[in-house]
Structures are given as structure tokens and as C-alpha cells.
Design a protein around this nucleic acid. Sequence first.
DNA 1: CCCTTAATTAACCGTTGTTCAATTAAATCG
DNA 2: CGATTTAATTGAACAACGGTTAATTAAGGG
Lengths: 191, 191
Amino acid sequence: MAPRKAVDQELSREAIIDVAHQLFVDQGFQAVSMRMIARELGYSHGAIYYHFKNKADLFYAMIEQDFAMINQELAQLDKLELSREEKLKELLLGFIRFGLTYPNHYEVMFIMNDKELQHYATNAPEQSYQQFAQAVAALTNQQIEIKKIWSVFLMLHGFVAHYCRIGHSFQEVEELAMSHVDMILGMIYMG
Amino acid sequence: MAPRKAVDQELSREAIIDVAHQLFVDQGFQAVSMRMIARELGYSHGAIYYHFKNKADLFYAMIEQDFAMINQELAQLDKLELSREEKLKELLLGFIRFGLTYPNHYEVMFIMNDKELQHYATNAPEQSYQQFAQAVAALTNQQIEIKKIWSVFLMLHGFVAHYCRIGHSFQEVEELAMSHVDMILGMIYMG
DNA sequence: CCCTTAATTAACCGTTGTTCAATTAAATCG
DNA sequence: CGATTTAATTGAACAACGGTTAATTAAGGG
């Protein structure tokens, strides 16, 4: 009935996640079907069920990767040879850069709004935010209120969310991003 | 085959929009079906098609109503008996209030990334933003750069988008909103 | 009594997530 | 090398649900 493909063309968890990612971001969880993913991959839909238990399972595996990535990027900031001010600026700009470099990831992590999945994808964002907040606090010598850090995050989020939506790259909006970040920094340092 | 209901119980466009409104808020465009709306109304799904051409038609009729709402709300600001500073504050806070009071419409206007529907809902947001930007410029005596107004908008957008996502009402986050707005105002006035 | 309006219901046709027997390629073993 | 086992893929089948349409029926006004 059905030929099995050669070993060098075997389907992998990663390949599925990659394709699923693009589709989920483009169209949302509900709108993307297992069949669509399979079609895009050039495989039958049944094949996906060999690698993932079900649709939700695939989805969770997908965003798990994403959060690991941003956490790692946040952690790497400490190692830079920069002043506190420069590090802070790099932190804020880096958040934007991450969001626009991996818009698919960012959208799934912080923008996408699906009732079914939100329950599962609520812990990881919180954890990433905590890491961000701690970095900001450290880089401002704990002089900044908790509430303010949260506002800063939302200000960055607004920038990223908007340009994610209209599909601009970081390069295209780099100048605007810098000016946005400068405004935020001004606000942080002026109390 | 099927009895028609009495006149005093006839289905109306408004009734449909009201129910659809609630459901769309709760679950989003894709997740809400015509059958669900009809079930909620206590009518058959076919009945809706007498009042609306199709699902998209219903959806647009629904948001059209409230598209005018934000513009009207922006316009009404002029008539308030307040100082410029107070008006500006009310403008920023009002934007957040609108977004969280009508999260589904806000989502369609500024967040949703549905290819099908975005085509229809791309002009109106731009128009609303222009009105917002002009109001800000006027209330700051044209002392603020264009770029800065845009950043201010994105800062508000970040707030609304996030709390839309996790489904909080304006009341629930009113204090946070005020503090967020105060930060933005501080930034505006400090250059 | 006819005609428009409004509602119901069945039906059409497509898609969905998921399961599963059948099938085949690769790997392993004798 | 040949036989057997294991892994991976297929495609059919299922039951549910989607939007939409058309035939049908009933209500009320002229």
C-alpha cells in the first residue's frame, strides 16, 4: 500500500516542529491542522502521530524549545564586557532583536491567544519574564520598582508585537527600536 | 416542516450581533461557529443566514459598530473641561480602557493576524491611529516628535495586547494602567 | 387569498483529530 | 547472503463538526 521513505529522508521531530511552527504562527493553533503540517512536509498525516502523541503534544514540544532559547539568550548577557548602562541597553534592545529575529517563536510565546493552550503555556512566559525582571533589577542596582520593570516589559512587548504582526525584520526597524529603547531608558533613569 | 416563531420573538440583527459578540470575545473568530451562535440564541443556524450573508459578514457588521466607537471616544475628549495635561492623561488611559473593554474588537484591529480578515480590517486601524496621533500632538502643543508619539502608542499597545491576551478586564488592572500611563507621561514631559 | 418575510430542517460537501491494519525499508541476526 | 525482526510510513476509516444552500413551512399584512 504505502512505501516507506529512504532513511536519509526520514521524518524527524525537529522537521515537524519547524514546519508546524511556521504554520501555527501564520494561522494560529485552531486553523492549522495535522494534515496541513503533513502536506507541507510532504508526508501523510498519519506519520506525525508516530512522532507525537497528538496535536497538543506537538504544540507543547514546539514552544518548549522556544522558551529555552530566550532564557539562554538572557543568561548570556552577564558575560558581556560592558558597563551596567550598556548592558541594560543591550538587554532591552536584545529583547526586541529576539522578538523580530524569531517572530514565529515570539508570536507563539507572547502573542498567540488560544483558550485551550493558554493553560499550558502560561508558566513558561512567566518564568522568562522573571529572568528578564531580575536582570533589569540587577542592572539598575535594585533602584527600580517592580511595577516599573513590568511597564518596561510591556513597552518592549508593544513594539515587538506590532512589528511581528506586520512582518518587519529587526534590520528594517532597528533605528526605531533604538529610539524606542532610548525613551524607555530615559524613563528608567529619571525615576 | 418547521414552524415559524411569533412576531414578538423574531430574531433581529442586533440580537445576533449581541450574542456573537459575547462568543467572539470568549473564543475568537475561528472557534465560534454559526451553529454555536444559533444555539445560544435559541434559533436554528439557518436563521442567521437570513440576516447575514455569511460568517464574515456577521463578523464585520459586529466590529463596524465599535470601530466608530473608538474614534468617537477620541473625538469626545475635546469637549471635556480639563487642562491639557489632564486631557492627555485621559487620552492615554482612555485608549487602554477601550482596548480592555472591547478586547475582541481591539484584537481584530491591532492584534489578530488572520489572513482572511486582516484584509478588511487594515484601513480602519491606521485611521484610528492618525486620530490618536493628532490628539497627542495637539495636547502637547506640537512639542513632541512624531517618532515619540508612535512609541507612546506602542507602549500603550503593549499593555492592552498583553492583558487582552490573558483576558483581564479594565477594572482588574486599572491601577497598573494608571501607573503605566504615568510613566509614559513622565517621559513625554521630560523631553 | 396572495405575497413577502422569517424560521426550520435536511442535505451537501469539506475538514478535523485520531486510530489502525497494511505495507515496506532498514537493521539485525544466523 | 537470506531470514527475521523492528521502525517508519501510508492511506483508509471513523465520528464529529464546519459553512452554506435549498426546499419547506408558517405568520402577518395588503
